[in-house]
Amino acid sequence: MSGKRSFHLLFITCLFVSVAFMVGCVQEYEVELQAYPEDAGEISGEGTYEEGEEVTVEAEPEEGYEFEKWKEDGEKITSDKDYKLEVIDDITLEAQFEQQEYQVSLSAPKDKGKVGVEEIQNTDYEETYKYGEEVTVKAKPSDYFEFYYWEDLEGEIGSEDKSYTFQVEEDYDLVANFNPKLEEVIELSDGIEITLGDVWEQLIEYTSDRGEPQSYLNAVGVKETNKENKKSVHFGIGGYNPSIVGYVDTKTNEINLIGRAERSDKVELYWFLDNDYIIYDYTCVGTGFHHLHFHDVEKDEGVEITQMEKFEEKYDRKEPTNLHNIKWSEDGKELYFEVECKDEETTSWIFNAKEKELTLEQN
């Protein structure tokens, strides 16, 4: 073999060996992944990769957790669950997950009871809890009421136990429902005793637009009147403080309801001592308007005097009216009262009880 040919052969052999060596020496790096907390989610993309290779690491939270961020050496690098990177060195990435938090809200109808967690607190309660945390909600009924059930906003019954324990897996908005104790004896005053069952049918008659009485009843009260053996009684119902107005016979404890006072405050009854005529008046909470009602006990019918045509012609209800000096005539046939209104002189009125006619007195 000539020397020139041998040289060419040696050169090609060396070149082949050099290329093979270079190919066999490509740098490789490790991509290591960690999850925190350890069982909070699944991670993928860990492995050995050649230098310059593009890799996508992925994080998927378990139920009750949400992905927050990828971190390297304690520093945030992205909040995307899927993160693409170019491998240029060994790297350790941590997928950080956070436990989901939910609101637990409790409420109870005013004056019927209270609610809370651990301790009974008020008519409402709201707190944030982590997913899976165990919570015990409690309800305590007010006097003359008993606990009925817990209900969510969709009307689903959660439990019929006053103390209700559950694991938090979503937002909870629970209402504690209470029922009046129909057989419970209520002592009004001076030995007057009734049960709610005594007036249940009458309550339903005056509140048919509100459903069953247990959904609204929240107070019972009694006041003196100028009628012997008669006292006024009112049953408060939910929403802007309206009352069902009536009277109780202190000899028989019999109750008769005569009307509904909307959004009422300070309901008063004025009897005429001989004829069974009743006037009841109240001020409307919020508007300040004064209302005056007449009721004929014998006929069991009535009329709102302050909504009669002559009264509304005089007062268009743009300004609140205040009624004073409400009193019956000596024969009980007429009712007198005075009206005050902003920027107007005081006026005097006469209401004829038998004819149900209203007259403005001329000054």
Rank of each mutant, 00 (worst) to 15 (best):
I237N: 00
E42N: 14
P109E: 06
T252R: 09
E134H: 03
W349N: 07
E205V: 12
D39Q: 14
K130M: 13
R263N: 14
I204M: 14
G238R: 08
P61V: 10
C25A: 08
A59V: 10
V115R: 09
L182F: 06
Y36W: 07
Y164H: 06
W70P: 01
E127Q: 13
F289P: 00
I12F: 15
P61L: 11
F351N: 02
G47I: 11
K69V: 05
G158S: 14
F272G: 01
E361N: 08
D161F: 04
P213V: 15
T128Y: 01
E301V: 12
K227H: 11
F147Q: 11
A40E: 03
Y206E: 03
E60R: 12
E51K: 13
T78S: 15
S142I: 07
C341F: 04
H291L: 01
V19R: 02
T128L: 04
G132L: 14
Q167C: 03
Q121L: 02
F21C: 08
V222H: 00
S79M: 06
G74V: 04
K333T: 07
Y149V: 02
K162G: 07
G211M: 11
T225H: 00
H290N: 09
Y315D: 09
E298G: 05
C284F: 02
A139I: 11
G41N: 13
G239C: 04
V233E: 00
Y131E: 07
E344P: 06
